[in-house]
Design a binder for these strands. Structure first.
Length: 464
DNA sequence: TCTGGGGTCCTAGGACCC
DNA sequence: TCTGGGGTCCTAGGACCC
């Protein structure tokens, strides 16, 4: 099949069928036009990544932590979720349970911070708004990462723009960032790792020619590639694939057979052929609220109050986003680390007669599911509620029969009052009776939490 | 003693229908 | 009594990301 620019599918080392599948194309005519578009699309992507983000946020308000080993802990001060370069150098790994390194903290060799998501969300908002002001469009990928969409920006200007952004963000927010620039998202990720790792780049690394690409891939362990996780990395190593370069050198059939479509996408991206699409701004499909308990719980009433609290939080989030959900799932976990105890990981899903977002309806369904799965005699460590099949609130279809429209109106009205009265980031004043005094964030251990410097005047004034 | 939370996508396999 | 295969839908589980 002849194609534009004298290229054929085999030049890409791909079968036509795989190509169509990767780009999610079904008709043959469509395939040709999409392929031509694809070949001509030669965008550059820039990935902005905040360095050790949670640690950097803590350091902005406690500069004495600069240059010292610091970690940020998960909820319940359970395990390490962020590390400074100095704590990485101490050999502390991501996900390490805190009790294994609390000795270092006690002896003053390490500073451990409980996580403070209100602070991190606010700092993230500041960084993102600087980026959004500087380029035509950004795609926020996570709390600490964003892709810059540089349509219409001359390619040779991009590195300078990015170097300017690194300086500006550091100066205005105190957060250090690294930027990777490359023709695909996956390669931009690789580039950002280099920008972060080697001081000489001054925070910006560009992969824009074949020599740089090959060099970068040969220095990148396959386990660090975006899309290759902790399960696949050992499998790849056992097959003799150590570096990202080893990976792209394997034929596409081999990749396809062993790692399927997902692996093939990564393979193309590493060759510099973009096929990971933009994150669509589609609404989310589910919302989850879950917590581990500081201690294991056995009492049915106590756990049901927690579940009611998670459900109320999900409902509140739905209303905030102007959406409603059809399915409500409740799940329970026993303590998976305790081999000596009986294990039980049940879940149940309730389908509502119509998509809902009121605290009453979501909570009632979550509790119904809870009653279906709860068994006496287990020690529960975690519970949660997921609301799924989310639709926009103004598109909710009400059933014709067997449905109390008046009750729904009352429920919605009460929920609106709760939204007005309850503060955004503090325990709510108004709760359902089933919640008793349970708020989704209650009962969480956080003995090392910093102040909410950026969002609370009282706490800002405490800075010494 | 102590081990996070919140998402997405893909695939395999079972149920069911014709 | 014996025996088939294809399509669709759904769900559970596994992989990934931060």
């Amino acid at each position: 099949m002849p194609l534009s620019k004298g290229l054929s599918f085999s030049d890409w080392g791909l079968r036509q069928r795989d190509f169509a599948e990767i780009l999610n194309i079904s008709s043959a005519n469509h395939l040709r036009s999409e392929y031509n578009k694809f070949v001509e699309l030669m965008l550059m992507y820039a990935l902005v990544d905040c360095n050790n983000f949670f640690v950097s946020c803590e350091r902005v308000f406690r500069p004495q932590l600069e240059g010292r080993p610091v970690v940020v802990l998960s909820n319940n001060d359970g395990c390490v979720v962020a590390r400074s370069n100095e704590s990485k150098a101490l050999g502390i790994r991501m996900g390490t349970p805190f009790y294994q390194i609390s000795g270092l903290a006690d002896s003053g060799k390490l500073t451990a911070c409980s996580s403070n998501y209100v602070l991190y969300a606010d700092m993230s908002r500041r960084v993102m708004s600087i980026l959004a002001d500087a380029v035509p469009k950004i795609e926020q990928y996570s709390i600490d990462e964003a892709f810059l969409i540089l349509d219409g920006v001359p390619e040779d200007k991009i590195p300078d723009i990015c170097r300017g952004l690194v300086k500006k963000i550091r100066k205005w927010t105190g957060i250090p960032v690294s930027i990777g620039i490359a023709p695909t998202r996956t390669l931009a990720k690789v580039a950002s790792h280099f920008a972060k790792k080697y001081k000489g780049y001054n925070g910006v690394c560009v992969i824009d020619d074949e020599a740089k690409r090959t060099k970068a891939l040969s220095l990148t362990p396959v386990s660090e590639v975006w899309g290759i996780g902790r399960r696949l990395a050992p499998k790849l190593r056992s097959l003799g694939v150590e570096t990202a370069l080893d990976y792209v050198k394997r034929p596409s059939d081999w990749i396809r057979e062993k790692f399927m479509l997902h692996g093939l996408r990564t393979w193309m991206e590493l060759q510099g052929k973009a096929c990971v699409e933009a994150e669509t701004e589609a609404a989310r499909k589910s919302i989850c609220c879950s917590r581990s308990f500081a201690d294991m719980l056995e009492d049915k009433e106590e756990i049901s109050q927690k579940v009611a609290g998670f459900a109320a939080q999900c409902a509140s989030q739905l209303r905030k986003e102007g959406t409603a959900a059809v399915h409500v799932t409740t799940f329970l976990y026993t303590n998976r680390f305790r081999d000596d105890l009986d294990q039980y990981f049940p879940s149940a899903t309730i389908a509502l007669p119509a998509a809902a977002s009121s605290a009453q309806e979501i909570t009632a369904a979550a509790l119904e599911a809870f009653r279906m799965i709860f068994r006496e005699g287990y020690k529960y460590k975690k519970a949660g509620v997921i609301v799924g099949d989310i639709v926009s609130a103004d598109e909710v279809q009400l059933p014709l029969f067997g449905y109390d429209a008046g009750l729904r109106q009352k429920n919605d009205a009460l929920s609106r009052i709760m939204d007005k009265l309850n503060p955004v980031s503090a325990p709510p004043l108004l709760r359902l009776a089933s919640q008793k005094d349970a708020h989704y964030a209650d009962g969480i251990r956080c003995e090392h939490r910093s102040s909410r410097y950026s969002t609370s005047w009282d706490e800002l004034l405490e800075i010494k």
